[in-house]
Design a protein around this nucleic acid. Sequence first.
DNA 1: ATGAAAGCGCTAACAC
DNA 2: GTGTTAGCGCTTTCAT
Lengths: 331, 331
Amino acid sequence: MNPNTTLKEMSQLLELSISTISRALKDHPDISIATKRKVRELAKMMEYEPNAFAVNLRTNKSKLFGLIVPVISNYFYDSLISSLAEEARLNGYSLLILQSGDDPEIEKENVKLCKQNRVAGIFVSITKDTTDISFFLKLADNDIQVVFIDKVPKQDNCIRICVADVAAASIAAEALAAKRKKNILAIFGNNKLSITQERLKGFTTFFEKQVKKVKIDFKESCSLTEAYQTTIDRCSKSARPDAVFCMSDEILAGVMKALQELRLDIPVDIGVIAISNGLLPKIYYPEITYVETSGSKLGKLAHLKMMGCLAGNCQAQHLQVESIFVKGASL
Amino acid sequence: MNPNTTLKEMSQLLELSISTISRALKDHPDISIATKRKVRELAKMMEYEPNAFAVNLRTNKSKLFGLIVPVISNYFYDSLISSLAEEARLNGYSLLILQSGDDPEIEKENVKLCKQNRVAGIFVSITKDTTDISFFLKLADNDIQVVFIDKVPKQDNCIRICVADVAAASIAAEALAAKRKKNILAIFGNNKLSITQERLKGFTTFFEKQVKKVKIDFKESCSLTEAYQTTIDRCSKSARPDAVFCMSDEILAGVMKALQELRLDIPVDIGVIAISNGLLPKIYYPEITYVETSGSKLGKLAHLKMMGCLAGNCQAQHLQVESIFVKGASL
DNA sequence: ATGAAAGCGCTAACAC
DNA sequence: GTGTTAGCGCTTTCAT
C-alpha cells in the first residue's frame, strides 16, 4: 500500500518548503529553473496527482457537472449523454450522472447530491411531473448553473436547450402533405411533456393553416407496446390510414412492429415518418424517413451554453437545435 | 448570492462551538436533546448541506465510483450504466462517467481523473486495444478497487464480471441444432475482444462435440453495416443459409435489415437467433429468439462485488451472469 | 528565489 | 454536555 503522493512528502524529500513545490509544479516565475526541474522529476517519479478535494475545498468549485435525466436507457439519452460526456472531457470536466427514475422526489435528492459535490453546473432533463422548479432556480445562490435540456419546464426564467420541436413536427407534417396523405394516424407521447405539447402544436398548426380536408387521427401512446396496439387497432380496419406519424423513436418501434406483423408494404400500403434520433430509422428496410432531433447536437449546444454561463454570460434563454429532414424510403 | 451554509456560520448564530453543531447533526449521544433540536431546525432552515470536499479530504475517500466504458451510446452499455447508476444511488454512491472512445490513451487519462477524484472504485470495460493492465492493478496501492466488466482483460489476477459468454453461445448453438439447422451463417464481432473469443468458443465447441454434418459459415463483421452486407451477400445466393446466428445486438440489427430487404420470411425461409440485451429482439415482428445477456444484471452483480471489495473481500475472481434463453418466433 | 502561515469545512481525539 | 485543537492537502499572501 503506497498511498497518494502529497506535496508534503516531496517537500521533505527535496528539503524544500511545501509552497516551493507547489509553485514549481505550476511553473511559477519566481522558482528557479533548477528547482523546477528537480521537483518535476520527483513528481513524475512518485506519480504525484493533486488531491482534487483539497483543491476544490479551497476554490469551493469542482471540475464536475451533474447530469440528471429520467432514465439512461432510452433511445435518445444515450447519445445525449455520450456527447455531453465527451464535450465535458475535452474541457477538463467530468460528468456525474444521476437518474431520477422520472420521480420528482429522487430528482430533488439528486440536486442535493450535486450541491454536496459542489458541481459547477447541472444539466437536467426534468421528469414529467416536475412543475415546481424553484429548487433549481435557487441553485444560482450556490453559484451552480442550471441548463435544462430536452424535457424543460414551462417557465421562461431559466436556460432551456431543446430540439426545435415545433419545427420538427411541422416539417414532418409538411412531408406528409407533400405526399398527398389524406388519412393520417398521428401518435404522440405523454401529454404532460413539453416536447409532446410542442410537437403536437407544430403538427396541428401546419395542417390547420396549410392543408384542409385531411383526416388526422390523434392518439396518445406512452410506450412501445401502446403504440404497437394503437397501430394494430387502426390499421386492421378497412379504412386504413395511408400514413403514420411517430412522435418519437419508442413510438416508431411499436408502430413498425405492428406494420411488420400486418405485413403492410412500406411505403406502398402505408407511409411512415418519425421524429427520431436517427439510430432506429436506419435499422429498418426500407429506411424510415425522419426528422432528426439529434441528442448529440443537443449535448454539444447545452455544453456550449454551460461554458458560456460559467464565463458569466448566463441570461435566461431558450435555444433550439435545428431539425433536419432525413429522407428515407418509407414515405 | 447566498452561498452554502457552513458549520461555522451556524455555530456563530447559535453561540455554540463548531464541534457541537457537527455532533448534533450526526446525532452524537453526548449532545442534549434540546441542543440537537435547535441545531437541526437551524440546519433545515438554512438548507445546510455538508461540504463533500471537506468530508472527503479528511477521509481521503469519496462516495464516488468511476465508470469507464468505450462509448455510452451502444445497445448494451445504456442498460449497464443505468443499473450501475441506480445501484450506486441506493447505496449512497454516485457515478462518474467517462468514455474512452475505445482509445487506450484516453482510458489512461480517465483513470488519472478517477485517482484525482479519489473514487472508491472503478468499473471498467476496456478498449479492444488494452493489453497492459498494470496501471489498473496499481490502483490497489491507492486503495481504489477495480472491477472489470463485460470487456475484460485476459489476465486472471483481477476481478472480472462477465456475461456467461461461452454458455450463451452454446445455448444458441443448441437451439439451432434442435431446429435441425444444417447451413448456418454465424456472424461475430471484433476478434480482439474477449467476448467475441468466448462466444466463438462456445459456439464451435458445441457443434464439434454434439453435432456433425452442419455447415457453418463464420464471418467477422464489426458494425451494423458490415453485418448487413454480409447477410445480403450470403443470403442472395441460391444456397441460402437456413439460419443466422448474431453475436450481438448491433449485428442483429444489420442482419434484420438485410433480411427485410430480401423479403425473406422469418422463420419459414430463414431462422434467426441472437445474443442480445433484449431490447432489439422485441421491436421486430416476429420477435427474435435470443439468449439474454442482461446489461442490467451485469451492473447489479458488478456493484455487489464492488461493495464486497470495499468491505474487504476482494480476491481476484471471474464471475458470470447467467444467460437465459428467451423464446421468440424467429427460429 | 524560497519559506512561513493562514485558511478552505469538517471530524475526532482530548480536554474540562 | 460542550469546547479546544490539530490536521486532511492545497493555494496564496506576506515575509525575508
